[in-house]
Design a protein around this nucleic acid. Structure first.
Lengths: 119, 119
DNA sequence: AATATATTTCGACTATCATTGAAATATGGA
DNA sequence: TCCATATTTCAATGATAGTCGAAATATATT
């Protein structure tokens, strides 16, 4: 993943409202949620919500499809996946960074087996 | 990790210059780099660099300590670790999201162990 | 003390972002 | 067709962020 693309994804998630939307959609699973449901849950004005949904869509973190009068949004797991891969590869790049924490175990795994280092 | 904190970290990394700085420091390892070295490598004006270093420091992603006339910055791996943990837990939260990709293998690992009932 | 180097802070400017009411578009139903 | 609902687009506004020259601060050297 390109640095600029990663920065765009990070910036998109680097806003409380958008991060909330994204979390909500992740929780909702593959079915996703229609826009109005998101708006009601998070108490966002339609225009504001639309603005953030558009932003998240533009960078590819979510996508929406019409469903009669509604538009149903759901997360694009692959984009999130790639972002995490990007961050992880930068986290330790083959060297021990934080063996003590369980969170970064993706790294431990990678270090043990795969040697996929793309920078 | 708090939602707001996560958003702050993501926003901090969501800028090309800062992401570049961060990557550079990660690559540099625990030793880190002095500010001027970063500035030369990335071709950033001192004031601009200082601005971004301050931002990254403020959110706890890096920290710097004086070393005679220089200030040596290095990554705070624990902050990065927590962020990745946050994203990972938000990416798949115990359910299969992307079994096909190798990148999100943290998920595969989690799926193998924990069985968090569907929401 | 005077000078040089490294970095930050200040100040000013520009650019981009976020918010939201109102109008526009899309769809469905009566 | 007319109306209601869902969502987006537009437009205007205020707020925040990014850039960078110049001045200030910190440290080292002579």
């Amino acid at each position: 993943m390109e640095l600029l693309t990663a920065a765009d994804l990070l910036a998109a998630l680097g806003h409380e409202s958008r991060l909330s939307i994204f979390r909500l959609l992740v929780e909702a699973g593959p079915e996703g949620l229609v826009a109005s449901a998101i708006g009601e849950t998070l108490g966002m004005a339609p225009a504001t919500l639309s603005f953030h949904l558009a932003h998240l869509s533009r960078v590819g973190l979510i996508s929406g499809q019409r469903e009669s009068r509604f538009i149903r949004y759901s997360t694009n797991y692959s984009a999130m996946d790639e972002l995490i891969a990007f961050l992880t590869s930068n986290c330790c790049h083959g060297q021990p960074c934080l063996p003590k924490t369980s969170a970064c175990d993706t790294t431990a795994k990678r270090r043990a087996g795969i040697t996929k280092s793309s920078s």
